[in-house]
C-alpha cells in the first residue's frame, strides 16, 4: 500500500535524481507494452494567478511544461493509464513519470518498487519543506516589543 495521494506522485518523483526515475521507468517499460495515448510534449504553460487584493485572475507569466499520457499493458493483459504534467522542459522525464504513475495506479506487477521510489521522493520533498520552515522559524520576529510611533520608520 501507499499512503501518498496520486496527485502528489509526480511531485514526489520529481524530487529524485532524474537518472534514477528514468531508469526505473525504463526497467518497468521493458516488462510491458507502453503506448502513448498522446505524444509526450514539452512547451509552455500560462500561469494564471488570483490577485490577493480583489481576487481577480491575471497571468503572472509562463512556465515550462512537459506532459505525457501513456497506456500500459502487461503480458497477461492488465491495463493501466498513467499521466504526468511537470513544470519542466523535458518530455522524456514526463513520460518516465507517466509510466511510473500508471504502474502504481494500476498495481501492475512490480508496483511495490515504484511505491518505494515515490515514498523516497516524498521524503526528500518533505526535507526540503522542513528546511524552509526552519528558516522561517529562525527568523520569526516579535514587533510587539517595538514602541510607538517614535520608533517607527515613519515617512511623513
Amino acid at each position: 500500500m501507499i499512503d501518498i495521494a496520486r496527485q502528489e506522485w509526480a511531485a514526489a518523483l520529481s524530487a529524485l535524481p532524474t537518472k534514477e526515475v528514468k531508469e526505473a521507468a525504463e526497467s518497468f517499460a521493458s516488462s510491458c507494452q507502453v503506448r502513448d495515448v498522446t505524444l509526450p510534449q514539452s512547451g509552455l504553460g500560462l500561469l494564471t494567478l488570483r490577485d490577493g487584493a480583489f481576487h481577480e485572475a491575471f497571468h503572472l507569466g509562463e512556465v515550462p511544461v512537459a506532459r505525457a499520457h501513456v497506456l500500459l499493458r502487461t503480458p497477461d493483459g492488465q491495463e493501466s493509464s498513467g499521466g504526468a504534467i511537470l513544470i519542466d522542459d523535458r518530455a522524456t522525464v514526463a513520460r518516465a513519470i507517466a509510466i511510473l504513475d500508471g504502474a502504481l495506479a494500476g498495481r501492475l506487477p512490480g508496483w511495490e518498487a515504484v511505491a518505494a521510489l515515490v515514498e523516497r521522493g516524498y521524503s526528500a520533498r518533505a526535507e526540503k519543506f522542513a528546511v524552509r520552515k526552519q528558516i522561517m522559524a529562525s527568523t520569526r520576529v516579535d514587533f510587539s516589543l517595538l514602541g510607538q510611533a517614535d520608533e517607527e520608520e515613519g515617512d511623513e
Partner: peptide, 11 residues
C-alpha cells in the same frame, strides 16, 4: 515553444 496549457486559477 508551443503553448500547451493555461493553468487553472492558482491561489
Amino acid at each position: 515553444k508551443p503553448r500547451l496549457l493555461a493553468t487553472p486559477l492558482q491561489d
